[in-house]
């Protein structure tokens, strides 16, 4: 499936994406500056959401929008296109449900 749903945990992307926000992301993408992407964390290997702020050849520098609460390329360096697993397309609100 080329479209994935993600739930955001943590505060490094505020105010654009708050804790608990839901987004749709595509695994087929063409990367541009300022794109919000889901990439593999080079240290932990977990899927992390950041914004592309700089590109140098095939390396992408990613940072959180909330710099004071983000661990990103400033610490772990640039990521390659192979590390980027999806590009965020849009944010959506989950349907409100009532459980009885």
């Amino acid at each position: 499936m080329c479209i994935r749903r993600y739930k955001i945990t943590g505060w490094s992307m505020t105010p654009s994406l708050r804790e608990g926000a839901r987004v749709l992301a595509s695994t087929i993408f063409r990367l541009r500056l300022a794109d919000v992407v889901v990439c593999r964390h080079p240290v932990t290997g977990r899927e992390t959401i950041k914004r592309i702020v700089r590109q140098h050849e095939d390396r992408y520098y990613v940072e959180g929008d909330n710099l004071s609460m983000s661990t990103d390329s400033r610490q772990f360096g640039p990521v390659t296109e192979q590390d980027i697993v999806a590009k965020v397309l849009l944010q959506y609100r989950p349907r409100f449900r009532v459980y009885l």
């Binding site: 945990t9 943590g10 964390h41 977990r46 992390t48 959401i49 950041k50 983000s70 661990t71 610490q75």
Partner: peptide, 15 residues
Amino acid sequence: KLFKTRTAEAHCDIP
């Protein structure tokens, strides 16, 4: 089930 929700971390908690 088709669109399983994954988690994307926006943390700053590298130990």
